[in-house]
C-alpha cells in the first residue's frame, strides 16, 4: 500500500494557465446519470458486502430497480426539456438486461462510459488480469451495443485497485488508440480537469465529477432534504460560474434514477437545471467532450505549468 496514489502532483488553484471553453463559456456543465444494475444474488466479494440483509435483500434491490422501471424515463424527460445530453455512467450488463433504456439514450446521442459490468461486482481482490478482463468486457459491451468507443471510467461502486486507471487507459489504447480510455471520474481533488499520470504515458485526464453534488451521496449518505439539495446545486453553480470568468471551470451533477427521479425529489433537481441552463456562457456538454477539448487545447500547457510550479516528476 502507498501513502499517495501517485496519479497527480500538487497544483494550486492559483495562477494556473487560463482554460478557455468553446464559445468563450465560463463553465462546462455536464450531467452524469448513473444507470446501474444491481444483482439480487451476486457472488460474495470477500472485501465488501453487496447487501446488508441476507438474500433476498428486497429493500435495497427494489429501490434500485425503481430507477430503471420508473425513474429513468422521468429524468430523461427533464434533461430533454433543458437541452442536456446525459453522460451515462453505465453498468454495462444493462445493455443486455434493459436494451430499451440504451436505445432511448443512444437515440438522443448521449454518451456512454463504463461503470463496470454490475454495480454489485467490486474490484477489490481482483488480480490485474481479472480487472483488465472486466474493464475490457465493459468497454466492448458499450461498443457492441452503441457503436461508441468508451472514453471515460467510473469504477463499479467506486471500488478501485492501485492499477485501475492504468488498466483502463491501456485497454482503451488497445481497443481504439487515443479515441478510447482517456478520462476518469474516480478522483475528487479539483474543480478543473487535471492531467493524470498513467504508466503507459498516455495523455489522460481527470474530469470533475462531484461527489458532493452526487444525489446518492446527498440523499442517502448525507440525508439532505430535497430543497436543500436544490439550493446546494445552485450555490455550487454560482461560485463556479463566478470563478469561470477568470478560467474555465467544470460543474457536474451525478445522478441516480432511483434517487433524483422520485416524485418528491424531481422538482428540486429540475429547478436547479432551469437555473443553470438559464445562464449565458454555460457550455452544456458531456464528459467526453470536456476531456477531448482539454486534451486538445490545454493538456500540454497544464503539464508544463505543473512541472514549473511543483517541481513535477
Amino acid at each position: 500500500m502507498k501513502e499517495d496514489p501517485g496519479f497527480y502532483d500538487y497544483w494550486p488553484y492559483d495562477n494556473r494557465p487560463k482554460i478557455s471553453w468553446p464559445g468563450g463559456a465560463r463553465l462546462a456543465f455536464w450531467v452524469a446519470p448513473n444507470i446501474e444494475f444491481y444483482e439480487l444474488d451476486p457472488p460474495a466479494n470477500p472485501h465488501r458486502k453487496a447487501w446488508p440483509q441476507p438474500y433476498p435483500a428486497i429493500p435495497g434491490y427494489s429501490i434500485r430497480d425503481y430507477g430503471n422501471r420508473v425513474g429513468h424515463a422521468r429524468q430523461m424527460a427533464v434533461l430533454d426539456k433543458y437541452g442536456i445530453r446525459g453522460s451515462i455512467s453505465l453498468s454495462t450488463a444493462l445493455c443486455d438486461h434493459h436494451p430499451e433504456i440504451i436505445a432511448q439514450c443512444a437515440q438522443r446521442d448521449w454518451e456512454f462510459f463504463s461503470h463496470g459490468i454490475y454495480n454489485t461486482r467490486y474490484t477489490y481482490g481482483m488480480s490485474p488480469e481479472q480487472e483488465r478482463d472486466m474493464i475490457l468486457d465493459s468497454m466492448q459491451s458499450i461498443h457492441r451495443h452503441t457503436g461508441q468507443h468508451c472514453a471515460g471510467y467510473l469504477a463499479p461502486a467506486l471500488s478501485h485497485s492501485e492499477l485501475t486507471l492504468d488498466l483502463f487507459a491501456e485497454v482503451g489504447t488497445a481497443l481504439a488508440g487515443p479515441d478510447a480510455g482517456f478520462y476518469t471520474c474516480d478522483l475528487f481533488h479539483d474543480d478543473q480537469p487535471t492531467p493524470i499520470h498513467t504508466r503507459s504515458g498516455k495523455p489522460f485526464v481527470s474530469i470533475p465529477y462531484s461527489l458532493e453534488m452526487n444525489d446518492t451521496i446527498a440523499y442517502v449518505v448525507n440525508k439532505i432534504e430535497p430543497r436543500r439539495y436544490g439550493q446546494m446545486l445552485r450555490d455550487n453553480f454560482d461560485r463556479l460560474y463566478q470563478e469561470g470568468a477568470t478560467s474555465g471551470t467544470v460543474m457536474c451533477i451525478p445522478t441516480h434514477n432511483y434517487q433524483v427521479s422520485c416524485p418528491h425529489r424531481l422538482r428540486a433537481f429540475e429547478e436547479a437545471l432551469e437555473y443553470i441552463t438559464g445562464h449565458s456562457d454555460v457550455w452544456v456538454t458531456t464528459g467526453r467532450e470536456i476531456a477531448r477539448h482539454y486534451l486538445d487545447n490545454h493538456y500540454q500547457q497544464s503539464v508544463a505549468d505543473i512541472a514549473a510550479s511543483s517541481g513535477g516528476h
Binding site: 457472488p43 466479494n45 470477500p46 450488463a93 459490468i117 454490475y118 461486482r121 481482490g125 481482483m126 488480480s127 488480469e129 481479472q130 478482463d133 472486466m134
Partner: peptide, 9 residues
C-alpha cells in the same frame, strides 16, 4: 485473485 465466479455472469 478472486474466484472465477466473480467474472461469470
Amino acid at each position: 485473485a478472486l474466484d472465477k465466479t466473480h467474472l461469470e455472469y
